[in-house]
Structures are given as structure tokens and as C-alpha cells.
């Protein structure tokens, strides 16, 4: 099988079974994965910041606009709106004693991601969030499962 495609910061990628996607090196960023288990179509947006400013150019960079774009693109690709579920990975606080406002951006990313998904009516079925460890996620569109790995070998499938 082809190597899974990686979704970098501020990128949005859709896929369908049997394709796989990865999101490597998530710190304070959040990977928002939405998935339709009936059609086996899903997608990831790798967001960096919570709220987009007005007239923003790069929608994929922000939780609010990025998730909406992911939702619209997934509908265009033929997912069933009612079947959609979401999973969230990331949002860690990497530098715990850094005294600048941005140091805990992960928490804001999580909050905005949850709010946006709730507003769109997409249910969150699994989360692997917060803490102070970086994570990498592998998303398999055949099963909808996400394998999350941290730096020193702790792996969880959800």
C-alpha cells in the first residue's frame, strides 16, 4: 500500500478507504479528524491557532475556519452529514514554565475545536488531548481508527 500522506501544519486533506493519513509531531496544534463510517470517507485538518481574524487568507490554520472548511469539503466528497463523527488529537502544553501568553495555545485550540464541532452538530467520539507530550496520529479510513503515538513509545488506538 502507498505510504500514508502526511498532513502538515495548516493543511487539510480528505481521504477514503483504504487510504491512510498521518499527522506527525503535534504539540499545541490539534488534528481534527472527521469520519463517515458508512461511506468510509474522512479527513484531517491540522490547526495551529484557535480563531481566525476577519478576512483571513489561510483558513486551514485556524480551528474555527479550518473545521468548517473540512466539514464543507467532506460534504462535497459525499459523506452523510448525520453519520459524521469527530476525533481530536493534540493540544498539549509543550513549554510549561514559559511565561508568554502563547505558551498555552493548545488549550485554546481545544476549546475552539470543540465549540466549532458542536456548532456544526458533529459529535466528538474520541479525544487524546492536553498533557505536555507531543503526539503523532495515524488515521485509517478503512476503519476510522486513529493510532496515537507519543515520543517514547506509548501508543493508543481509538
Amino acid at each position: 500500500m502507498a505510504e500514508p500522506r502526511n498532513v502538515g501544519i495548516a493543511q487539510l486533506v480528505l481521504c477514503k478507504a483504504p487510504e491512510q493519513l498521518t499527522c506527525l509531531g503535534l504539540g499545541s496544534c490539534v488534528a481534527v479528524i472527521i469520519y463517515d463510517p458508512i461511506k468510509k470517507i474522512g479527513g484531517i485538518v491540522h490547526i495551529l491557532l484557535p480563531k481566525a481574524p476577519p478576512n483571513c487568507q489561510n483558513e486551514e490554520k485556524y480551528a474555527d475556519t479550518g473545521i468548517r472548511k473540512l466539514y464543507v469539503k467532506a460534504l462535497e466528497k459525499g459523506v452523510i452529514r448525520e453519520a459524521l463523527v469527530a476525533k481530536l488529537v493534540g493540544g498539549a502544553q509543550m513549554f510549561t514554565s514559559l511565561n508568554i501568553a502563547i505558551a498555552n495555545i493548545g488549550r485554546d485550540n481545544i476549546r475552539e475545536s470543540r465549540d466549532t464541532l458542536r456548532a456544526l452538530g458533529v459529535r466528538i467520539v474520541a479525544e487524546e488531548l492536553e498533557g505536555n507530550r507531543g503526539r503523532s496520529a495515524l488515521f485509517d479510513a478503512s476503519t476510522g481508527k486513529i493510532t496515537v503515538r507519543t515520543a517514547f513509545g506509548v501508543t493508543r488506538t481509538m
Partner: peptide, 27 residues
């Protein structure tokens, strides 16, 4: 400078906050 903080982790995760601090303005 703010007093620095250090962490041991995967590079992508270490870079998130430094990039996020710039990302408000640029891509």
C-alpha cells in the same frame, strides 16, 4: 527575552509554539 523553557520531545511538537507565535501574522 522571557526566561526560556526546555523540553524533550518530537521535533514537530517542539516547534508548534514557536510557529504559533508567528502564525497570527504570516503563513
Amino acid at each position: 527575552p522571557a526566561p526560556p523553557d526546555a523540553t524533550v520531545d518530537i521535533l514537530g511538537a517542539v516547534l508548534d509554539v514557536p510557529l504559533a507565535s508567528l502564525a497570527q501574522k504570516v503563513d
